[in-house]
Design a protein around this nucleic acid. Structure first.
Lengths: 326, 326
DNA sequence: CTGAAAGCGCTTACAG
DNA sequence: CTGAAAGCGCTTACAG
């Protein structure tokens, strides 16, 4: 997209478009309006689009940010595209929108781990900057490109693993209702129980935030029952570590007295004692796929799909075993 | 200042200068050097210097990369400078130098966590791009700006903590000799022992790589002795987790039978059981300081100092206690 | 107000 | 490896 193309389409000369683009005087209001309309319609950008990809985080996550960054960086480097990393954190003191700095950098495309507001998405669209949402936590409008993981299948597989070991009373620590991936994991759990002909006991499902502390509290509630579960599937690894804590407090050994499965496979999962059985999210591969997609969109290529989910895999370590009475 | 002027002065063609400026191949090392010298001398800027800071990693570290990124990002954002993240990893399949892509982006400055080669540093200097070395692991020539941590003081403080608890036989798992911060930590350990009037037993110091596996092996060697230490100071947290593993295998309880101190304060340190007493490195603050320094250099400001070390602090958790016989 | 023409700074493709 | 030549995207100065 060049000013010469805009000029031709508008039926004016190149210098005229140049003046409009640069806000110079010497153009009639009529001509200016016509040219501006076309500039907007074709998404013309004054300077050449930069060879940059913007990776936007809501907040840089301690434990899995690096995996994402690594995946993005690898693919971007192959394409010789620089990765600009920004945090749209809540702690912005300046009055301006964080998106302004991103727009000013004129990236070729954006990969966003943060949930952008509808307004922010519109700003990107208005500036013709394509974006891909990484692991969306809320429902996206149709047509918004995204890359996620098979959360439902992961929840199902984690639960099936426990059923296969002989567990019949399996507790679940679920996440906030608004978080889409948590709902999918919960439904996977439910589906696996149904498939095995087990009735789901609603008392064995506890809602909790995705933190260690809340995982602990939820686990204490589950284990304090008259008929406690013999296994717990937590919505993420941090919650699972909270279950570890609760078990220690109650004098329960893992996995002898209680089996625990997490979700995410954070680096810490392999380091705790016992090493945690968990559902692995291929974060680096997801990030790589999101980057390929974003770059393709940035080049204006037609893409075979706008959204995809990459397969999770169950990583069996040593926090799961047959139940004691089996 | 244009490339045509540089070309004329250097006695080469305009396309040749263009290649040099953009880090393209197809220029002899000789010609490149001559042109770079002139670019430096006349302060040529390819268009306007971009409002970018390049953050260079050797390899993105799983466990502490995020802290560094966060510190850099926070300060860069305050200055409305974009952060481009690159990895100068060993797994580059393309034949070209990774530094070329960095130069082509024309950042205002560079913060490097990787140890750049002398040649890479020269390329940056030749292109008038100031850089700051983050936590240098090898001796730097005078005048190279850096930001590190007080490793010696940290090693001293960790050891003093153990002595204060009553330990007299304190083992140390040291790092590779070539890694400067490890040597400093070891010397801090030695210094604290001397200050307490304790003789250092060379048999209680074992060299190991900075991994969990090597920490385990080293700990087994230390604890397998007739007169084993009652406490171990590991050169980093991963080694300390190896000590945990070795202790478990030998049936030693931490901290009742063995006290353990690490170094770094990775996120995982607070999550293991028992939570690890360790020397905290203020990575985010170090990164912020490195960024401020780099940006100041990029603006051509005179800076009060070219190198500084930020204070470490001992974080006492639950892996240290009085020795059993005390 | 408008645009033909000249020109700028740079890149690209390619011949040597 | 090197650079003459063509060309790109844009701006500027100026004639109409």
């Amino acid at each position: 997209m060049t000013i010469s193309y805009i000029a031709e389409t508008a039926g004016v000369s190149i210098p005229t478009v140049s003046k409009v683009v640069n806000g110079r005087s010497g153009v009639s209001a009529d001509t200016r309006a016509r040219v501006e309309a076309l500039i907007h319609e074709y998404g013309y950008r004054k300077s050449n689009r930069r060879n940059l990809l913007e990776l936007v985080f809501g907040q840089l996550e301690d434990l899995w940010g690096i995996e994402i960054i690594r995946g993005v960086e690898r693919v971007a480097r192959e394409h010789r595209v620089g990765v600009v990393l920004t945090e749209f954190g809540p702690r912005r003191d300046t009055g301006d929108h964080p998106i302004d700095d991103t727009l000013a950098r004129r990236p070729a495309c954006v990969v966003t781990v943060a949930q952008l507001t509808e307004e922010q998405r519109d700003r990107l669209r208005a500036n013709d900057i394509p974006f891909v949402v990484f692991d969306p936590t809320t429902e996206l409008p149709d047509g918004v490109p995204f890359v996620g993981a098979t959360n439902w299948a992961g929840g199902r597989s984690a639960t099936r693993h426990l059923i296969g070991l002989g567990h019949r009373r399996i507790g679940m620590i679920s996440g906030p209702d608004g978080v889409l991936c948590c709902r999918a994991r919960l439904d996977g759990y439910r589906s696996a129980l149904e498939a095995a002909g087990l009735a789901m006991d609603p008392d064995l499902v506890v809602r909790a935030d995705l933190t260690r502390q809340d995982g602990r509290t939820a686990a204490l509630a589950l284990l304090d029952r008259a008929d406690p579960p013999t296994a717990v599937f937590a919505c993420n690894d941090l919650q699972a570590l909270g279950v570890y804590e609760a078990a220690r407090e109650l004098g329960l050994r893992i996995p002898a007295d209680l089996s625990v499965v997490g979700f995410d496979d954070l680096p810490v999962a392999a380091l705790v004692d016992p090493p945690l059985t968990t559902v692995h999210q291929p974060l680096a591969e997801m990030a790589a796929a999101a980057t390929e997609l974003a770059l393709a969109l940035g080049r204006g290529e037609p893409t075979p799909q706008v959204g995809l989910e990459l397969a999770t895999t169950l990583t069996v370590r040593r926090s799961t075993a047959r139940p004691a009475d089996h």
